[in-house]
Design a protein around this nucleic acid. Structure first.
Lengths: 207, 207
DNA sequence: GAAGAACTGGACCAGCAAGTCCAGTTTCTT
DNA sequence: AAGAAACTGGACTTGCTGGTCCAGTTCTTC
């Protein structure tokens, strides 16, 4: 999967090594950014050698793409229970609260791992941009699904566009994270998400 | 100003050289990011030498801070007429239209120069983070001023918080730019700004 | 016009980056 | 058991990076 180009089979050991590499890369990238993560760092953190890196990945970009997928998986897993209940304003607010609390716990250091990656790599090669698009879309998906449910159940007006709303929420989220990281305070993130949820609420039906 | 540490006087030639360096740096950083811009690149683009760079700036970080200021100035100058008329919903919409049009013209390549810089550097040294905070605050200032005017003139309800609204709009802007750059389409930016302006509109008084 | 400050040119350095190569080991297949 | 394929170790290359240094030029000031 990951990148094609890899037709060889993976033995159990090989799969474990590959996993270790991706996990280490994702972790390092989250903390130091893509440019700030060298292959030597990855080798050290995953206890592997250059040849192993190049055995499983075509080059650094390829490895970074795998790390982007991994980040997305991790995000989805972390937010899992909340992500499945975004079909009400209360659910959206619970999600926001959890998110903000997590950021505060991290003292608002480091923004969104996916956002940082996108900021750094989205202007690079198209293959990577394509992966980033898919990652964002995947992350926004639960949002879209929840909002669609709300509309179909008549709790949002029929002129509400779940697709557009989900994208706007994601934008508020990303921008909020960026400002929060810059100001080292969850205030901007909170304000951005509050705005986004209020915006959804403005489509709510009377009932 | 820029960084202190520079007590020496600038001759006309010196000032010109310094200006050339900062302009070249800002330009390169806008196109390739901070990590993607080497001092050699700056030297070539500004027709200067290493010693000149280090004569005017303490190190690369110092130079990047100067570039951040320059970016902010440039942004403000570019959006000037619109930025002074953010005291009505119509004014906000004109600003949004101009902004989106500019992004489309650039084919949504490269995001916000300030946003990219923040994403890369906000986790670095505190001095740089401080500059980035000030840059964002300066940029959001016209927004805050316009919204305050609207409220004071009774066109926004008195419970509208211009400070919070301005920050939320800025977040939507940054997030919208990030997604637009990733998707190579102005659609996310448009949706994010529409949401933000609708949010302001939700505080409008009947009149 | 001369001292001193501002400015400039570019050689040089040590460290680190991505990526290559090959020789060797382990595991799968038949 | 043996050949093939998967896997591993790490030395090595090439090029670039931020940063230092110093010798020389231009400008300002008195």
């Amino acid at each position: 999967m990951t990148t094609a180009q890899h037709t060889s089979k993976l033995t159990a050991r090989g799969a474990a090594t590959r996993t270790r590499i991706v996990a280490a890369t994702a972790d390092l990238v989250r903390r130091h950014g893509a440019a700030g993560t060298s292959l030597d760092d990855v080798m050290a953190a995953s206890r592997t050698s250059k040849s192993q890196l190049y055995h499983y990945f075509a080059n650094k970009d390829d490895l970074l793409r795998a790390a982007a997928w991994q980040q997305t998986d991790r995000i989805m897993a972390t937010q899992r229970p909340e992500l499945d209940q975004l079909d009400s304003l209360a659910g959206l607010r619970r999600w926001r609260d959890k998110f903000v609390a997590a950021r505060d716990e991290a003292q608002n250091v480091g923004g969104c791992p996916l956002g940082s990656l996108a900021s750094e790599l989205a202007d690079g090669d198209p293959q990577t941009r394509d992966v980033l698009q898919k990652c964002f879309t995947a992350w926004a998906s639960p949002l879209r699904i929840g909002l669609t449910a709300m509309r179909d159940q008549g709790r949002l007006r029929s002129d509400a566009d779940p697709e557009a709303l989900a994208e706007a929420i994601m934008a508020a989220l990303q921008g909020g994270l960026l400002l929060s990281k810059t100001y080292r305070s969850s205030r901007p993130l909170t304000r951005a998400l509050d705005m986004a949820i209020d915006h959804v609420a403005s489509f709510a039906t009377a009932r």
